[in-house]
């Protein structure tokens, strides 16, 4: 039994390493992010409408 223990440990370590590698690859593939496109804001459409009325204020600082 003691002769087989190092072999079992090596097999266990190899299996764990392979599992971690495949799990990491699966996670990264499922969470793709393009680092050159930092801004990914949601596009608003329904809540913004042009209007033909007098505005109460503006976004211009003074």
């Amino acid at each position: 039994m003691s002769d087989r223990r190092p072999l079992l440990l090596k097999i266990g370590a190899t299996v764990l390493s392979l599992l971690a590698t495949f799990a990491s690859a699966a996670y990264v593939t499922a969470h793709v992010k393009n680092p050159s496109a930092p801004l990914q804001p949601p596009v608003l459409s329904s809540s913004v409408r042009p209007a033909d009325v007098q505005p109460v204020t503006s976004t211009y600082a003074s």
Binding site: V48, V56, T59, Y60
Partner: peptide, 24 residues
């Protein structure tokens, strides 16, 4: 100072046009 939040619906001038903003 130009950073604004409209709670409810409000007409706001942005880039020379008026828009109705609601909760934005």
């Amino acid at each position: 100072g130009g950073d604004l939040y409209a709670r409810g619906e409000w007409p706001v001038a942005i880039a020379c046009k008026t828009y109705l903003l609601r909760n934005l």
